[in-house]
Simulated assay, not measured.
Amino acid sequence: MESKVKISMKKESRDSKPTIVDVARLAGVSPATVSHVLNKTKRVTPETEEKVLQAVKTLRYQKNALASTLRSRNSQVIGFVTSQLHSIFWLRVIRAVEYTLSQNGYQMFLGCSYGDPARELELIESMLQSMVGGVIIATCINEINEKELPISPQIMNFLEERCVFVDTYPSGMNVDFVGVNNEEASFQLVELLLKKGYRRIAMVNGDSRILTARERRSGFFKALKEYAVSVDERYIFEGKNLGKRTGLEGANYLLSLDSPPEAVFLASGNLTVGFLEGCREKGVRIPGDIELVGFDDIEWTPVIEPFLTCCVQPSWDIGETAASLLLEKIQEKKEGRAKREVRLKCEVVIRNTFQKG
């Protein structure tokens, strides 16, 4: 019986991970001394440091970097809150943010709201309580409404002082922001259609309360006005968001009209995917029956027909710029600093019929 007890105790010891207390006991020092050696927060004698490092090696102790930084007010962890994870565009942005942070000695703490404003606020509050150094936010919140979406003064201050928004931000907030030249790029895309002689041009877009949707809408109307083309309200379809379902709904609506449009401007890559699905279901040829231009270069666009003309957002530069701007903010630690808005240029890539015209 005694032998079995000893075997059980050895197994438990072997399976459990060594702690800082175990390291301190083996080195003959206090846990605080071990912490000072590992985190270089206080000088210790070379002999003591050697004992601690030897104990760490013997026990194969590994410091929990994330836990230790979250306990520090000078956290080396940056949060990233996104509203979606399935988009190629956002995956590229996230990768750029993570790489930029890692090159500067920071780690990234990722959370997804799945398009739910309440969940987004919960994630931001959780990160604030965990004392992250700051947060980059791809928000799904269009506007701050005290009745529908109350925000505490503490969170509001955190958003303004230690956060950077990307792609869009809630109206009425004084925050740092990194985005693209939505209006100008949309104008250029619609102008391509106008120069080819199209006049029955439609738009499929999301809710104009969304900053990106509102600015891309503005570029569309600006181009029509520039070429003295009157707006036909039948050709304007605006759904709840910039997602695939809205694109499909837009296709079903526009293609069912007695006089369908000759060309369509699509305000996002996800809208384009949904619209293409609707065209396929109705047997509509692209190009041939209808011409399309849109925001975002979908992964398969250059290799699978139809080869769509589109506006390419600099996803890597967006992520890198947002991370660099946030690090600059939190390292300067200046309160009341002027907010910055950075707008990066999109590239219009011309494909298919536009190359023949």
Rank of each mutant, 00 (worst) to 15 (best):
L91M: 15
L91K: 03
L91C: 15
L91D: 04
L91Y: 03
L91A: 14
R92L: 05
R92W: 02
R92A: 10
R92Q: 13
V93N: 05
V93H: 08
V93W: 09
I94Q: 06
I94F: 10
I94G: 03
R95T: 11
R95C: 09
A96C: 10
V97M: 13
V97N: 12
V97E: 11
V97S: 10
E98L: 12
Y99L: 11
Y99I: 06
T100D: 07
L101P: 09
L101Y: 09
L101A: 05
S102H: 14
Q103P: 02
Q103N: 08
N104R: 06
G105M: 11
G105L: 12
G105S: 08
G105V: 10
Y106H: 12
Y106L: 13
Y106F: 15
Q107P: 05
Q107C: 12
M108D: 07
M108R: 03
M108N: 08
F109K: 00
F109E: 00
F109L: 05
L110P: 13
L110N: 09
L110C: 05
L110Q: 07
G111H: 04
G111L: 09
G115P: 15
G115T: 14
G115I: 13
D116P: 12
P117Y: 08
P117V: 14
P117R: 02
A118Q: 13
A118C: 06
R119W: 15
R119G: 13
R119N: 14
R119Q: 15
E120Q: 11
L121F: 12
L121D: 10
L121C: 07
E122A: 14
E122Q: 15
E122C: 10
E122Y: 14
L123C: 06
L123N: 03
I124E: 04
I124G: 04
I124R: 04
E125L: 09
S126K: 09
S126Y: 14
S126M: 15
S126V: 11
S126W: 13
L128A: 02
L128C: 01
L128V: 00
Q129C: 06
S130V: 00
M131E: 14
M131H: 15
V132M: 04
V132F: 08
G133D: 03
G133N: 06
G133W: 11
G134S: 05
G134W: 09
G134L: 05
I136G: 03
I137R: 03
I137A: 04
A138E: 07
T139H: 02
T139W: 11
C140F: 09
C140K: 01
C140L: 03
C140T: 07
C140N: 06
C140V: 09
I141E: 09
I141N: 04
N142Y: 14
N142Q: 14
E143S: 15
N145T: 04
N145F: 08
N145A: 01
N145Y: 04
N145Q: 07
E146W: 08
E146D: 10
K147R: 08
E148M: 07
L149D: 01
L149R: 01
P150I: 00
P150W: 00
P150Q: 02
P150K: 01
P150E: 00
I151Y: 02
I151D: 00
I151P: 01
I151M: 00
S152M: 04
S152C: 06
S152T: 13
S152V: 08
S152E: 10
P153E: 00
P153G: 02
Q154W: 04
Q154I: 07
Q154M: 07
I155D: 02
I155Q: 00
I155V: 11
I155Y: 05
M156A: 03
M156E: 05
N157A: 01
N157Y: 02
N157L: 00
